[in-house]
Amino acid sequence: MATKNLSEYDITTVPDASNMIFGVVVAEWNPEITGALLDGCVSTLEKHGALPENIHVKTVPGSFELIYGAHQMTLNDGYDAVIILGCVIRGETPHFDYICQGVTEGVARLNATSNIPVVFGLLTTNDQQQALDRAGGRLGNKGDECAVVAIKMAKF
């Protein structure tokens, strides 16, 4: 459970992103949530100087496909960071566990083997309300947080 607002951060610690290029891979599943995450991410990147033409967004059908999409973007030498955005809501079967674990391991592997950072923006919630709370609701927007992380990691 988030203990702070995901959209709150010290603005003075975020580098200028005006010369950076970002890849963003967004899952189409749970579009109300992933669309809000994307809006937060893009607006925060732009707030810190990223030019709209330097934010390249691609969609994939579901959260598991985020790994492939991010990997393809890491192969393009033009990105300073790649951000994945998705949402998996627990259901009645173990599918939730397999998808969450697979995406987590896939993104970890990309971070260990790629020359650019891949930022993990996958919401893994027990219900729809928890997802809404983290996609611009009472706990802020995970997309904002991912944008800030991407900028900082690109400058690492």
Rank of each mutant, 00 (worst) to 15 (best):
A2W: 04
A2N: 06
L6D: 02
Y9M: 03
T12N: 13
F22C: 12
F22Q: 12
G23N: 14
V24N: 10
V26Q: 11
V26D: 08
W29G: 03
I33H: 09
I33V: 14
T34G: 06
T34K: 10
T34F: 01
T34S: 12
G35Y: 04
D39N: 10
G40A: 08
G40P: 05
T44Q: 13
H48T: 11
G49Y: 09
G49S: 07
A50Y: 09
P52I: 05
I55H: 09
H56T: 08
K58D: 07
G62R: 01
S63E: 12
E65F: 00
Y68W: 06
A70K: 09
A70Y: 01
H71I: 00
H71R: 11
Q72Y: 03
M73P: 04
L75K: 13
L75Q: 12
N76Q: 06
N76H: 09
Y79E: 04
Y79R: 02
V82Q: 11
V82I: 11
V82W: 07
C87M: 02
I89M: 00
T93N: 00
H95C: 07
Y98G: 02
Y98I: 04
V103Q: 11
V107Q: 10
V107H: 10
N111L: 14
A112N: 14
A112V: 08
S114H: 13
S114A: 14
N115W: 14
V118K: 08
V118L: 08
V119K: 05
L122H: 06
L123T: 03
L123P: 05
Q128V: 08
Q129V: 06
A131V: 08
D133Q: 04
R134P: 05
R134V: 01
G136F: 00
G136S: 10
G137W: 11
G137P: 08
R138M: 13
L139I: 01
G140Q: 14
N141L: 14
K142A: 13
K142T: 00
A147P: 11
V148H: 15
A150Q: 13
I151F: 15
K152I: 09
M153L: 15
M153A: 15
K155P: 03
